[in-house]
Amino acid sequence: MSPQEKDLYKFILIIAVVLGIIIAYFIFSIIRQQRRTLSLNQEKILAEITTLENERRRIASDLHDEIGPLLSAVKLQINSVESEDSNDKMLIDKSSSQIDEIISKMREISNNLMPNTLVRKGLVSALEEFTGTLNKTNQLRINFSADPEVKLSKEKEVNIYRMVQEIIHNTIKHAKATELNIRLQTKDNDLILITEDNGIGFNFDTRLKENSGLGLRNLSSRTEIMGGTHHFYSQPGKGTKYVFELPLG
């Protein structure tokens, strides 16, 4: 190498090092930015879901605790009316049975908003009850089983309950399945939720993008705020399988 080339070579080496530093900083800043975005996003979803569930709980308990007693009082009053007229009697009977209907509809609505069993007895009982009622009325056969030692915080129980609810609704609505298996189990420090149907299946990624439904999106969001991961195994014609791994701690 001539002296000029030596100088030029040094110069090139220096540029190469500077280039390396710039690239390193670039990578570092991307990693930092992604972490920020991720935690910001999670806080946002968490806030949304917490607001949603609080609101549901409030409406459910207002309906149940305030309208419920009022209706019962009305019913009592109507039944205490005494009349000899057969027309009046018929009217009283009719009103009374309509009020019964209102009460049971209201219970149903309140229960859908925030299941009583979920609050009182926990996730497993609530899901047993939910699948039990559906099995009585639906074509779809739902097999639910859970490890006895599943123990969770209240927030997580609500989240998982909603997720299972959405999966069941989707299976009834879209899957054309005859059977749905749902299993809750603990493995090491994770809770694992596996659901599997024998329906028509679908392509999760493309459906998530083109579909306006909120169900699948909510499944992802709720998994995300619990710090868990999900896997979907579904192909058109081969049924749908979900596996959720949710940290217990």
Binding site: I30, I31, Q34, L38, T229
Partner: peptide
């Protein structure tokens, strides 16, 4: 693509 990953990656990016 790196920039896209900032918003789409849900797990640990590294």
């Amino acid at each position: 693509n790196l920039n896209k990953q900032i918003t789409t990656e849900k797990g640990d990016i590294i």
